[in-house]
C-alpha cells in the first residue's frame, strides 16, 4: 500500500488523542507488517470502503485502553468494562472519521464502518495488503496505528489539501 495512506491516520490520531487526553502524543517509526495479527491486548478494527478499501486497526495494552477510556469519561479510574470498550471504540471512530475526511480531500473519497473491538493478541485480521504501522506514544502508553488500504481505482478529483495535512505528511 502507499505510505501516503497512513499519514491521515497519524494526523487524526495525534489530534484526537491530544483532544481527549489533553497532552500531545509523539509519533514513532514507520514499519511494515505483512501478517495481520493483533499484537496488542486491545484492538479496535474499523473498515474503510470507497476509493481505498481495507482496515485501520488501533492497538494498545489493556492498561492504556483503560486509562484512555477513563480520561474520555472524565473519571479518575475505571474497569475495562462494556462502557470502557465502547469509549475505546468511539476513539477509533473519531480518529478514522477524521482520517477518511483527509483522504477524501486528497481525492480518495471513502467512508468508515462502525468499530469492532478485538481482545487478545495473535488474533488474525483478514487484510488484503500488508499493513503499515506507526506507534503513537501518549502519557498513558503506546497506541499502534495499523493501516492496510488498497486503491479501488475510484479516485475522485483532488480538492486542495489543508495545511495540517501537508505538515504531517513531512513528519511521518
Amino acid at each position: 500500500m502507499k505510505a501516503e495512506f497512513i499519514n491521515p491516520f497519524v494526523t487524526a490520531g495525534l489530534k484526537v488523542l491530544e483532544s481527549v487526553i489533553s497532552a500531545r502524543p509523539e509519533s514513532g517509526q514507520l514499519a511494515v507488517r505483512s501478517a495481520a495479527f493483533t499484537t496488542q491486548q486491545v484492538s479496535i478494527v474499523i473498515g474503510v470502503t470507497g476509493a481505498v478499501e481495507g482496515q485501520a486497526i488501533y492497538g494498545m495494552s489493556l492498561v492504556t485502553a483503560t486509562k484512555i477510556a477513563a480520561a474520555m469519561s472524565s473519571m479518575p479510574a475505571m474497569a475495562f468494562d462494556e462502557m470502557a470498550s465502547s469509549a475505546i471504540g468511539e476513539l477509533g471512530n473519531m480518529i478514522s472519521g477524521h482520517a477518511t475526511t483527509l483522504l477524501s480531500e486528497a481525492g480518495y473519497e471513502c467512508q468508515i464502518t462502525p468499530p469492532t473491538l478485538v481482545r487478545g493478541t495473535e488474533v488474525e485480521i483478514a487484510t488484503s495488503t500488508p499493513a503499515l504501522v506507526i506507534p503513537l506514544y501518549t502519557d498513558f502508553g503506546k497506541m499502534e496505528i495499523n493501516v492496510a488500504l488498497m486503491e479501488t481505482g475510484e479516485k475522485t478529483a483532488t480538492s486542495p489539501p489543508r495545511d495540517t495535512e501537508k505538515q504531517e505528511a513531512s513528519d511521518a
Binding site: A12, K15, V16, S19, N93, M94, I95, S96, G97, H98, T100, T101, L102, S104
Partner: peptide, 8 residues
C-alpha cells in the same frame, strides 16, 4: 453529532 473533520 459527528467525528471532527467530517465536513462533507
Amino acid at each position: 453529532c459527528t467525528a471532527l473533520g467530517q465536513e462533507r
